[in-house]
Structure formats: structure tokens, C-alpha cells
Nucleic acid binder design. Sequence first.
DNA 1: CTCAAAATGAGTTGCGTACCTCAAAACACC
DNA 2: GGTGTTTTGAGGTACGCAACTCATTTTGAG
Lengths: 346, 346
Amino acid sequence: MAETLTTAALTLKDIAREAGVSLATVDRVLHNRPGVRPDTVRRVREAIERNSFQPHVAAAELARGRARRFAFVMPSGPNPFMQQIEAYLGEMTAWLSARRLNVEMVTTDVFDASVLATSLEALSGDYDGVAVVALDHPTVRAAINDLVDAGTKVVTLVSDVPSSRRHHYVGIDNIAAGRTAGALVGRLVGGRSGKVAVVAGSQGLRDHAERIFGFNQVMASEFPDLSVLPVLEGRDEDARSEQLLARLLGRHADIVGLYNVGAGTQGVAKALSEAGRDKVVFVGHDVTALTRKLLLQGVMDAAISQNPGHEARAAVRVLLALARGEPILREQEKIRIDIVMRDNLP
Amino acid sequence: MAETLTTAALTLKDIAREAGVSLATVDRVLHNRPGVRPDTVRRVREAIERNSFQPHVAAAELARGRARRFAFVMPSGPNPFMQQIEAYLGEMTAWLSARRLNVEMVTTDVFDASVLATSLEALSGDYDGVAVVALDHPTVRAAINDLVDAGTKVVTLVSDVPSSRRHHYVGIDNIAAGRTAGALVGRLVGGRSGKVAVVAGSQGLRDHAERIFGFNQVMASEFPDLSVLPVLEGRDEDARSEQLLARLLGRHADIVGLYNVGAGTQGVAKALSEAGRDKVVFVGHDVTALTRKLLLQGVMDAAISQNPGHEARAAVRVLLALARGEPILREQEKIRIDIVMRDNLP
DNA sequence: CTCAAAATGAGTTGCGTACCTCAAAACACC
DNA sequence: GGTGTTTTGAGGTACGCAACTCATTTTGAG
């Protein structure tokens, strides 16, 4: 009827006694300090294992004295999604200061590899952890690896650099996101046949390219009655997206679905409404003030969302766990692909 | 270019100096201990506010000495969803013991108000916090209020008792969940007209009733071409659900959609397949091993899910924050209504 | 003004760890 | 056996707060 999930509360002193050594030696082993014979290390490690000893987080945190410093390297310029991440970080200030954590925002041009790399190098040594919205480029990869080598914990945020030795990636699987978008468009079109338009920022961006890849995968294999038109590159700008899409709608009367891969949503919506094509199934990304409105109006049918609040908090928690040497709760920190429709708007 | 999100690290000593009182007085104010003049209380509070002082969590935790005890009161009997919650709690053991938190599972018949109330009363005094999957009944409400009055922090889990004075509810808005199911069935049916079947555990269960309410709301207002058949009460049992649904399918050849409100999924799927009605749009709840398989096979079209791992962790975090007197990160602890289709299976 | 009650100050101890120093012991090598 | 080096022990201090005691001051009622 009752079952406990936790073990007895041992202390380092207990471990020392168990292993037949002094506190100092246990401390040396625990912090990988030199001057302990391999055999002794083993004995201590065994005692720790045997009792599944966990250092008391609070005591450790208190004893180390100095506060931890984390940096968030984010894109400069207005980007609603990034602004949301910043806002959610702002809501954590009480939580952060109660733990004596310093989080600093550093903005830079993340789309210029050398600028981004320089910004990253500049952080070296000063920070315990860095979260970065990264461009996947050899120069950036090298900068990340340098940080890691200097002992800084590094987390990539939203956009990954899988080839680097970053400790963790906080973000979604963009291929799966594209597949989800494809499934939604296909299903919501509901058996009709016709054409599907795709508007992206640029196919050069890793996340956009991956989404398109996943989208096409699903469309090709599961919805043969729908043909995907060539991707329009709107550069995430409203005006350009609107113009390109308006022209496309004019040329094809049988467009039944639309996938907007990135931003520029305002322009896309405008092109649709001005062409009187409200029936087109419209799937896009992210829940912002705008997409929220469009969903409620029925202009957009679904949004694929990666919870920005979750991403911000996960990045902080992961950096903290890494810095403390705690295990990461993978399940907790995994960012889900949310399907948001009018009735489950968060 | 760089901006800090946290304030200087003050200590209680600083606050005492600021307020012109001694450490002892600050301590009395902070812990609502008696023997401080109202005017002095005000001065101290102001100093705390003025400097937005946050007690160092680690120091406070270390100083209080004794570990905190939390109890999870869960339904006895096999229930995959509840088992998942327990499993996720189990994955947290390292996290819990590093913070010297004791979590105990207490199983009881949560569907019998007096039994549940007795179980709750039995916990009084022994625990700092209680999470309970609660039946909404006056007896239970009273038991919860008694716990609250005794100083125990109480969180309702999955199923709420809104009329009680519980500190927090960790779970989804079931009306919105039902609405979401309705929107999905309606949209995925794709313009065809016909009938829609609804299978529930019992309309006496608050969450099931709310889901059905939301479902009907959407069907009535937005999908007039679909008519909802009377609810089948399968009592969350496979055999009974299968039998009832099989009979219904036999009587109505024009069933195009199906909403399974609770468990009994196995039986529902079997009835569908044995009647050869694979084309029926099938929307249900929760991602389990079974529903995962059905989604991958294309038998189920979508599942409405409330992330059980998130619920388990949120309950612990909320209880901890309440016990510490920390603010709750509402956005973080809010449970979302997840739409899960084949391509975004977690 | 007196006296008890209330309010406040001053101080102590302990929580479990990190980090440091210094001395002592064990060891390796010739 | 002596030398120098490595390994280990013993102990201390600090971190910020909770919780407590006891002495002292202030306050208010009579």
C-alpha cells in the first residue's frame, strides 16, 4: 500500500568510514583531484556505488560559494520566437536568484559564422555554461569545441550543431516536425486532390531544409493525390512571402494546401485572403500573437509549435545539471512537437 | 549586447542592516514567528522588497535539517496511465535523493469517497505535501481541507476537486480536451457526413463527463453534417467496450467517426477491425504502448495526451515550491493538451 | 512611576559539502 | 638503509540560513 522511492540519507563521512579512508581522500576522489592511488580510488568509488550515495545538492551548492554564470547567445534583430524565449527567461528571475544563478543574454548575428564564432570565443573562461542558437558551420563548430575544451558546458538551442561536441541539444527534431506538418496538411485536405504550396525562409537554413525534407517525405508516400509545388523562398519576410505566394495562387487555381515553414506568416495570410482562397488548408509554425489570431479566425488550420518557454527553462536546467555533474532528466528536457489547433491553444 | 537577468546576491545580514534590526528579528518576520511589532514587520518587509531579496534556497534547505516527505495517493488496480506516472517518478530517484526528498506511493480505492477520505486523513501530520488523484465528492473535499488546515501542501493530480482549498491542480482542462477531440474527428472526417460514436468509461466520472461535454459542443456548433450517437458506457473495460461498439457498428452503416473518451482502447480497436470498418476516424486518449501501436498501424488517427511524465514531475516540483514558499512557475507546471499523431509520437 | 509583558538584540550551533593546509605515513628506488 | 616522492590523515574555515537561548530594552497598563 505504501512504497518509498528514496534511499537513506548518507553523508560523505559515512562513505569515508565505509571505504576505510578519511574525508579528505573521499573528497579527492569525488573531485578527481590527483594524489590518490588507483586502488584507493576504486575502494571509494565502490563505497559510493554500494550505497548509491548522492551528494546533497544544497550543501554542495552552498559550499562552493561563487555563483554560476550562464550566457545565452541569441540572434540580434526582432524575432518573435526568440523574444518569447527571452521573456520566459525573464519570468524565471526569482527562481534564478534564489539559486544564485546569473544568466546573461548576448545578442549577435548568428547567421554570420565568423561573427558568431568570435562572440563565442569571447565568452571563454568567464562562464560556467553557454546556450547558443547556432549556425551549423565549421567555424562555429570549432568555437563550440574550444568552449567545451575550456570546461564550459555548452547547449545548442533551437538549432543544433550535431558535429560539434556540445553537451546537449535543446530543440525539436525538424524532420519529424516537417513530417507532422505533411500529415496534417494531407489529412485536413480530406481526400481532395490538388496542389500544395510551400513557403520557406531559405532552403539554406538547416532547420527549414529539414522540415521541407520531412514534409515532402510524407506527401510523396502517403498523399499521392497531392502534388507539392516548388518551394517559395520568402526569406522570412512578410512582403516578399506575400508577393511570391500571390503570384503562385494566381497561376494555380487548384491549390488546396499550404505549408509555411518559417516566419513571414503575416504576408502569407494576406496573400491567401486577398486572393479569396480561405478554404486552402494552411499549416504553419509557432504560436505567436499573430498565429494565435489566425487560428482563432480559422485562417490557419494548425500550427506546429516548439514550446519556447519549455526550451528556455530546459536550457537553464540542463546547463545547471551539467555544471553540477547531476544526471539530466532526458524525458523532461526533451522538446516535443506540439500540434496546436484552435481548441488546444495554450 | 549583453544583459543580466539577476540581481546582486544579498544575504539576511544585509537585510537586517538595511532595516536597522538584528538578524533574529528578520528571521522572525521571515518565518511569521510572533513577537514583532507590526511596524517593525513592515520595515523588514520593505527592505526585503526594496532589494528583491531571495533567500538562498541551498542554504535554507541545508539549515532545516530534516528531509521533506511527500505522498502520492494513487488508484489501486492496474491502470496504464497511472503506472506511467509511477514509472516517471521512479526515474527521478537520483534527483529526489540529491535533494533529500522522500516520495512515497500510497495506493487506495480512489473511486470510493470514504475510503479515499480515510486514506487522506491517515496522512495528516506525517507529510509535508500530498498529491492525490481525487474523486470530486464532499467527503473527499473535507479530507483535503483538513490536510490543508494541518499545514500540509495539497496538489490534485489528473482529476481535480475545484471546490476544495487544494493549493494547486496538476492536470488538463478536460472540456478543452473534449473540444480538441471533436475538432480532430470533424476535421479528419473531411467533409463527409454521417454518424459519430462515443465510447466512455462512465458519464459519472468528472473528467469523462467534461470531455464529452466539450466534444458535443464542437460537434454541434461546427460539424452539423455529423450526428453524435448516444454515449456507450464501457466502464473502461476492453470486453464490454468491444461488445457495445460491435453492436452499434452493426446497426449503423454510416458511422464515420469514433471518439474513445477513456480506456478500453483494445476492445474498441478490435470491434472496429472485426467489423472491417478501418476507415472510421478514430480519436482516443493517452499515449500508451497500445495506442502507440494503433497510431503507427493507422488504426487510430490521433490521440489526445496529457504527458504523464510531465504531470509526475510537475506535481513534485509544485509540492516542493509550495513547501519552500517559493513562487510556482505557472507556465512550466501547466499541463498541455497534446495532439499526438503518427509523425509526432514522442 | 512601577512592574509585567512584549519586543528586540546578541549570540550559538549545526546542516553537508568544498577547499585548503600541514604533518605523518607509506612507498619506490638505489 | 637512506633518500625523495607520493599518498593519506587530521583538521580547519567558510558558505547562508534555521532554530534556538538568554539577556536586555522598550512599551503599555495601572
